[in-house]
Design a binder for these strands. Structure first.
Lengths: 235, 235
DNA sequence: GTCTATAGTCGGATAGAC
DNA sequence: GTCTATCCGACTATAGAC
C-alpha cells in the first residue's frame, strides 16, 4: 500500500486541497455506511463530486484514502474527547484530588462517551463511531493506526482512574478487565444497536434515550466501584 | 433472493446431502473469517471441496448459502444454550424458587455465555459468535432470521430473570437497559477482541483467561443486582 | 447430480488528452 | 490538476456436456 498523499504543487498553495477534503468527507460517509470492502471508488468519487482518478492521484489508492480518513478520525476524536482525558490525567497527577472527585471524573467521561458513541444527529460523531466499532470488530490494515491513535489513550487513562479509585495497580489484569466491563456497558448500545433499538421499540437514539442510558450506566459504575473497593477480587 | 434449497431426488435418499453439508461447514468457516461480502463463491466451493456451481444449485445463490448457514447457527445455538434458557424459564414459572437461586441462574448463564462467545478452541462456537457479532453490527438481509432465532429468546429470558430479581416489570425500559449493560460486559470481549487481547498481552482467550473474565463479570452482576434492588432508578 | 466453460458485470487503477 | 476512456482482473451465475 502506498500512501502518496501528493503534496501541493511547488510554490503554490494546495490546489487540490478541496478535492482532498471532499474525498475525506465522502470517505467518512461511505465507509461508515458500507465499510471498506463495500465502498467502491466509483461511489466514493461520486459522493465527493470528483473524478474516480482523483483517489489514486491524491491518496495512492482506495486504501490510502481509507488511511487518510482514519487520521481524520483520530484528529477529530482528539479535539473532542482528548481534552477530557487530559483533564483526567492532570487530576491523577494532582495528589490533592479527593476520591469523590475521581469517581465524578469517571462518571462524567463515560457520560460524554455515551453521547459521542451513540449520537446519531451530528453526522461526524456517528460516522466516526461506526467506523471505529467496525474496525474493532474486524481489523483491517488501518487498525494499528487507530489503536495507537485512541484505543490506548482512552483505555490507559480510564484504567489509571479505576486503579486510583480502587487503590489497586493500574497494570493489574483485574483493573484492566474491570475497565473493559465498564466500557462494554456503553459499547453494547452501539455494537448491538439494531437489536437494542428493536427491543426498546425505539427508532433511533435521541437525547432523552441517551440520557436514560447514561443514567443507568453511571449508576452501575458507582455501584461497581463501591463493590470492588470493598471486596478484593484478585485475579 | 431465491433459496431453492433443492430437495432430494424423487424416491431417492438425499444424494447431494453431503455436498450441502460440506458447503454449510465451509460457509461457517469462510463467512466467519471474512464476512458475507468478503466471501467469494470460489473460496466457499474450494473450502468445501465442491464445484462453484454447487452453490447456486443447492442454495440458489451465495446469499441462499448464507441463510442456510444462519439456520444452522440458530439450530446449534438452541442445542447448546437453549436448554439453559428453558431451565431458567421453568424456574421463573415455578414460584417456589428463592431469590438466591434466581441470582445463581443468572450468574450461571452469563458464565456459559462467556465461554460460548469467547471460546476459540472449539471452532464451531467461535465461528458462530463471530458471525453473530458481525451481523449484529451491520445487519444484512439475514439479520431478521437471526434476531428471531435467538436475540429475542436470550434477551427476553434474561430480562424476565432480571425483573424477577429486582422485583420490577420485565417490560420496563429500566430492566431492558440494565439487561443490556449486563450483556455488554460479556460482548465487549468479543467486539473489541483484538484491542483487549493486545492490552492484556494475551494471544488468545484460553480457559484460564475466560474464567478470569467470568469471575469479574459475575461479581459485577451480583453487585449490580444488589445495588439496583436497593435503589429505584426509574427511567 | 456434478462438472467445465463461459457469459455478463463490476471492481480498482492507469494512460493520456486537456 | 482534472478528466475520459480503457485495461485487466475478479466476481456471480448460467448453459450445457457428461
Amino acid at each position: 500500500m502506498k500512501t502518496k498523499t501528493r503534496s501541493a504543487a511547488p510554490g503554490r498553495l494546495e490546489r487540490g486541497a478541496t478535492a482532498r477534503q471532499k474525498l475525506i468527507e465522502a470517505g467518512l460517509k461511505i465507509y461508515s455506511e458500507v465499510g471498506f470492502k463495500g465502498a467502491s471508488t466509483r461511489s466514493l468519487a461520486a459522493a465527493a463530486g470528483v473524478n474516480i482518478a482523483a483517489i489514486p492521484y491524491y491518496f495512492g489508492s482506495k486504501e490510502g484514502l481509507y488511511l487518510a480518513v482514519m487520521d481524520h478520525i483520530i484528529e477529530y476524536y482528539r479535539k473532542n474527547l482528548g481534552g477530557d482525558l487530559d483533564q483526567i490525567r492532570q487530576a491523577l497527577d494532582d495528589k490533592k484530588t479527593s476520591p469523590a472527585e475521581y469517581l465524578a471524573l469517571l462518571e462524567g467521561y463515560i457520560c460524554r462517551l455515551v453521547h459521542f458513541v451513540l449520537q446519531e444527529k451530528s453526522t461526524e460523531c456517528a460516522q466516526i463511531s461506526i467506523i471505529y466499532t467496525r474496525e474493532q470488530m474486524d481489523p483491517t490494515s488501518a487498525f494499528q493506526r487507530l489503536y495507537e491513535g485512541f484505543s490506548t489513550g482512552l483505555r490507559e487513562t480510564l484504567e489509571a482512574l479505576v486503579a486510583t479509585i480502587l487503590e489497586r495497580d493500574a497494570q493489574s489484569s483485574e483493573v484492566k478487565l474491570i475497565t473493559e466491563t465498564l466500557l462494554g456497558q456503553v459499547t453494547i448500545f452501539k455494537s448491538s444497536r439494531v437489536t437494542v433499538l428493536k427491543k426498546m421499540g425505539w427508532g433511533t437514539y435521541d437525547e432523552k434515550r441517551m440520557a436514560d442510558i447514561a443514567r443507568i450506566v453511571t449508576f452501575n459504575i458507582r455501584a461497581l466501584m463501591q463493590a470492588h473497593k470493598q471486596k478484593d477480587t484478585t485475579v
